[in-house]
Design a protein around this nucleic acid. Sequence first.
DNA 1: ATGAAAGCGCTAACAT
DNA 2: ATGTTAGCGCTTTCAT
Lengths: 335, 335
Amino acid sequence: MISIKDIARQLGVSPSTVSRVANGKNYVNPRKRELILRAIEETGYVPNKAARAMVMKRSFTVGIVLPYTFNMFQRQLFAIIERHLESFGYHTLFFFIKFDGASERECLARLKSEKLDGVILLQEIRDRVFYDSLSRLQLPVVASTFSFPDIPSIHVDETQAAMDAVNHLIGLGHRRINMISGSDATFGKLRVEGYYRALDAAGIERDPSRVLIAPFYTAESGMNSMRELLLKNRNFSAIYAATDDLAIGVMRILIDKGLRVPEDVSVIGFDDIEIADYMVPRLTTIRQPLEDMGRQAALILHRGITRQGMARQEQVLPYKLIVRESTAQNNEKGE
Amino acid sequence: MISIKDIARQLGVSPSTVSRVANGKNYVNPRKRELILRAIEETGYVPNKAARAMVMKRSFTVGIVLPYTFNMFQRQLFAIIERHLESFGYHTLFFFIKFDGASERECLARLKSEKLDGVILLQEIRDRVFYDSLSRLQLPVVASTFSFPDIPSIHVDETQAAMDAVNHLIGLGHRRINMISGSDATFGKLRVEGYYRALDAAGIERDPSRVLIAPFYTAESGMNSMRELLLKNRNFSAIYAATDDLAIGVMRILIDKGLRVPEDVSVIGFDDIEIADYMVPRLTTIRQPLEDMGRQAALILHRGITRQGMARQEQVLPYKLIVRESTAQNNEKGE
DNA sequence: ATGAAAGCGCTAACAT
DNA sequence: ATGTTAGCGCTTTCAT
């Protein structure tokens, strides 16, 4: 592997000069610069990242932490973040973690050993210690899809968005509305909270037996929950799923059991993942501004890394109700 | 950040000894080892990856190259590979590239600068130079979903699989079968080739106007192509899409235009992505052994890195026709 | 069994 | 404008 010294020796200049040229610094004779540039080109010299990282104490790499059981929404989001990070000149390292302390600690150790420049959290971590460790390392962090005190974060108003989703159902004449959410993540709880509040506002009694909590936020979880629900009763005219992934599983089972969506049961999701618009029927949902969320996350992190300040901030982005085909007027005679 | 020296000083031993303990080497007094281990634990010391990488000339990181416009199949595949690589103790760096020389060259430069231990290609690269450069760097490579001379690769028999897909359609009485494939990738061409061969075998005349080539292998591309096709004619009773992603887009448009799948038009895909089983109707397709492909790719690369040999190999994995609901008997009277 | 010393490839402070 | 020097944190001979 060709190094900076090789180039220096070959041209009879010092390594520093080559380094200066390679990094586009000033104070170097234009003629010499030309020469060096050509030599770099010809030899195919490429700087060694590890060496740079060591001396500069920066790796130009940021870590993205995401759940082991990541769903389609998270897949889309991290692809977007990756793209923006790349445009700022960063590489991305992924850290898949489970929702438990051991996994978080292990992740923390890896985060440390990597000499990262920053971290983006797509999986929620509730342990104060985690953030404290990172801040001791001067490691900028930004949280996406959830918030944590004093941590810059990007998310939508989950509760309000969930209320809007349920209000849409209520506006369609539904009153027997069930909800399916997932475990662990706060956004799942917030969405349940929004569900309840919308019910309250409409004067519909809260009924905890109408809320099912699946282990994950995936389509498979949605299927299982819906199956379970149907075993118990059919006393609902609409289902609010906490994520589109869940909703897709819900629709699958509904249709398999001969129930029509939306004629017999309305289904609404949350996220507006790519596939939502390809489902039959097209999924009504709440759109999270994926593109913006990704860009903002990358941008805020970049600012934090380059000390452009404003690390302490919480961005609440606008969401949007997207009415498609999976929800319809409730036709049942006076329930 | 606490370093190996800190621990050494604190305990009055030499850095070498700490290093030996940290790396589980022999020749160290058990009592001292205990002491050092405890200090490591207490101080939360974590080795600096960059420093290790520099001196060991290994980074314990492997690169995964995948298309910028990656579809759901590729998303699933890389998640699986990531998981297996991690189980071997590697981290993963992603390289998203476009299908052009400039992008490939840039990728190559980055690949070099990262001091990677190995590379997995999920995006096809046809330039001999690319492989030569990597081999000069002693960088093990494995290709997945395509093959290249002398490069270890994992894939299915694309042509045969495509023939099976089309034969399924022919067996159902279809003769006016159109195909939609994508650009650039060889697997797309191979699948077209299989399509033609199946037609040949059934004595159906090849008609190039029945084959549409979309720019990508995504659902959106599938939609666009299908729209385009319907503008021209409806002279087909079945569509063979080169990927499930394409097929999903195809079904969307068919249904939007009031054509029933499979009653009016049968649709078959390729890949068997997760969502295929959630579509309405469920998508008939060719299953690629994703889990196996991912595991094998990681395993072969690991062997290459650790010099356990057998780097020169081509693994052709079994595929399987999964008949679901999107294909049916052709009911038209004698065409 | 352990320490001293060299060196991986690079950048940055300093000197000129 | 350019070279010299030191040092980032680690592993690995080589002595002892």
